[in-house]
């Protein structure tokens, strides 16, 4: 596996705030990564560092084997779609699509035109007259049609409706399948994207909390629901991630179960339900917090 990004002991401080705190990871070529975390966790700062828009306080970053800072060779292979991209005052969407090919060698105009139709974007209207969702769709179109070997989407869909978001996911998957590339998608809408991701990075308070294959992460937990006594008998001394209950009912989140364990649970009259990536991350983040508090 070739790695597209290698980050070692990366930190970024703004005064006393550690926005990114001693983070190390690698991003493998041609995979879709999810960069997840709460507001202010450090996702955007991390992406700004990776794309050479911020200088690191310490640590090293390598993109395609080189430093991204002031490096045209790296940056022309990189596309960064930001939540609040600004455009020149009197630009219209068609001006954006006219200039984009100057920056991206792999730009596909036919694909851009198809996306413009899909998103019903009025290309002749001045950008400042566009709605929030239409503004976001410009970024999404640029991000997809640029086909950059390394594409960052930082909360690309503020204001996009459910239909437009689904179009984004579908086009991303289709085009990724036809033209494999490395994609890093940062979002709060974890449940919507969880099936698209191959690998998940979770960042919390500047630290890298989870760096795991998405499939492994999805199978990490199951909810077992049923009568309190039956649930307790079934879980025995398994590791419990989360425990909830009401009256005689109990709902316990445990580590992933094998097929035979699932059958045992069904025979014991227990119900099994999936733990979404979003729920799992919330629970794991909470556990970490507790451990952190305990050790402090």
């Amino acid at each position: 596996m070739t790695s597209t990004i290698e980050v070692t002991n990366l930190s970024k401080n703004f005064g006393k705030v550690n926005a990114v705190n001693d983070v190390s990871f690698t991003v493998e070529e041609n995979k879709i990564y999810g960069l997840l975390g709460r507001n202010g966790a450090g996702k955007t700062t991390l992406m700004q560092l990776l794309t050479g828009q911020e200088f690191a306080s310490s640590g090293t970053i390598s993109l395609f084997g080189q430093t991204p800072v002031e490096n045209a060779k790296v940056l022309q292979n990189t596309c960064f779609i930001k939540e609040s991209q600004r455009y020149p005052e009197d630009f219209r969407p068609k001006d954006v699509f006219k200039t984009a090919p100057w920056f991206f060698a792999n730009w596909d105009q036919d694909f851009a035109d198809r996306l413009i139709a899909d998103f019903r974007l009025p290309v002749d209207r001045r950008i400042k007259k566009l709605s929030r969702g239409q503004l976001s769709s410009i970024g999404v179109i640029v991000g997809l049609a640029s086909r950059a070997p390394l594409t960052f989407f930082d909360e690309p869909y503020l204001g996009l409706d459910a239909v437009a978001r689904q179009i984004f996911y579908d086009r991303l998957l289709e085009d990724y399948a036809a033209h494999p590339r490395t994609v890093i998608l940062s979002t709060h809408l974890i449940d919507e994207v969880s099936n698209l991701l191959e690998h998940v990075l979770v960042i919390d308070e500047g630290k890298l909390l989870i760096n795991e294959d998405a499939e492994t992460l999805r199978n990490r937990a199951t909810n077992v629901v049923g009568m309190k006594t039956a649930v307790e008998t079934f879980i025995g001394n398994r590791e419990v991630l989360h425990r909830d209950g009401i009256g005689g009912l109990s709902s316990v989140t445990v580590a992933g179960l094998s097929e035979s364990e699932r059958r045992d649970a069904h025979s014991a009259g227990l119900e099994l339900s999936p733990v979404s990536l979003q729920q799992l991350i919330i629970q794991l983040t909470r556990t970490e917090t507790k451990e952190f508090e305990a050790s402090a």
Partner: peptide
């Protein structure tokens, strides 16, 4: 194909391949 499965189920192609 793998890519058709991935698009149909809206999942990552690596998952479809598996």
């Amino acid at each position: 194909s793998i890519n058709e499965f991935a698009a149909f189920y809206r999942i990552n192609p690596a998952t479809a391949l598996k």
